[in-house]
Simulated assay, not measured.
Amino acid sequence: MISTQRIATLKAWGAHGFTATGVVLAFLATLALFENQPTACLLWLGVALIVDGVDGALARKVNVQSVLPHFDGSVLDLVIDYLTYVFIPALFIYRYIPLPDYTPLLVTTVILVSSLFCFCNVDMKSKDNYFQGFPAAWNVVALCLFIIGPPSWVTLLTVIGLALLTVTRMKFLHPFRVKRFMPINIAVTSIWLLCSLSLVLNHPTLNHLVMGLWLLASAYFLGICIWRTAMEWFDVNHGKHS
């Protein structure tokens, strides 16, 4: 009969194993780039995004820190996140997103280097689990640029602007960790993911209803970020703690 401790250990390793699938997804996304399949690349990155969204809750549920104290799951998560959130999306933007002449290498460098600050920032999260500064979510940026297809100079300014926001205290929503409005946040995130899937699979054909829902969901996220940032500014300027 398997002991309770052995079962807990197996569950903890299972949680780490689930997180580790992200590196396989990163490899598959890279293969898609090599094979000139941008849609497949985004789909693999999308699966990796979902895995990253739920693996933390799974790890906390099985209490991996106390069961396996010698294995740092946060480092595992960061290594995979840099691949799937930063490095592969930077390659995607370099290869598939139009940029002004002579700027692709600059843009890629800005993405890679600014993200290092984000990943090394010990104040990455606020007390209520918002990201402080742009959280290097370049996979989401790559997806948005692919769907919208803005002029090259808009893409350049967008990348530079987001990189600069990395070193600010602007708040960005983590839909699975922020407790306030969590049911709404998760519902809107689900709608956004489903719309993104549809838009990517049917690209470049555009379904206006799906696009409208996708834009509304995106506007909701932007609004939440601006609202939370404004609340902190108000609290700081009126002598309250954020």
Rank of each mutant, 00 (worst) to 15 (best):
I2H: 14
S3P: 13
I7Y: 14
T9D: 09
H16C: 11
A20P: 00
T21M: 11
G22S: 05
A29K: 00
L31I: 08
A32K: 06
F34V: 08
E35N: 12
T39K: 15
A40Y: 15
C41G: 15
V47A: 10
D52A: 07
G53F: 00
G56E: 07
N63T: 09
Q65R: 13
H70I: 03
D72Y: 01
S74D: 08
L78Y: 13
V86C: 07
A90G: 05
A90I: 06
A90R: 04
L91W: 07
I93V: 10
I97D: 01
P98E: 04
P98D: 04
L99V: 03
P104N: 04
V107P: 12
T108A: 13
I111H: 03
S115V: 02
S115A: 06
C118P: 01
N129V: 14
Q132L: 08
G133E: 04
F134H: 10
V141K: 05
A142I: 03
C144E: 05
W153M: 11
W153R: 09
L156T: 08
L157A: 11
T158C: 15
L162M: 03
L162N: 02
L164H: 06
V167C: 00
T168W: 03
R169M: 02
F172K: 01
H174I: 09
F176I: 11
R180E: 12
F181H: 02
M182Y: 11
N185M: 07
A187T: 13
A187D: 03
W192Y: 03
T205Q: 12
N207M: 03
G212W: 10
L215M: 08
L216A: 14
A219F: 15
F221V: 11
F221S: 12
F221Q: 13
C225N: 15
W227F: 10
W233V: 11
F234Y: 15
D235M: 12
V236E: 14
V236R: 15
S242G: 15
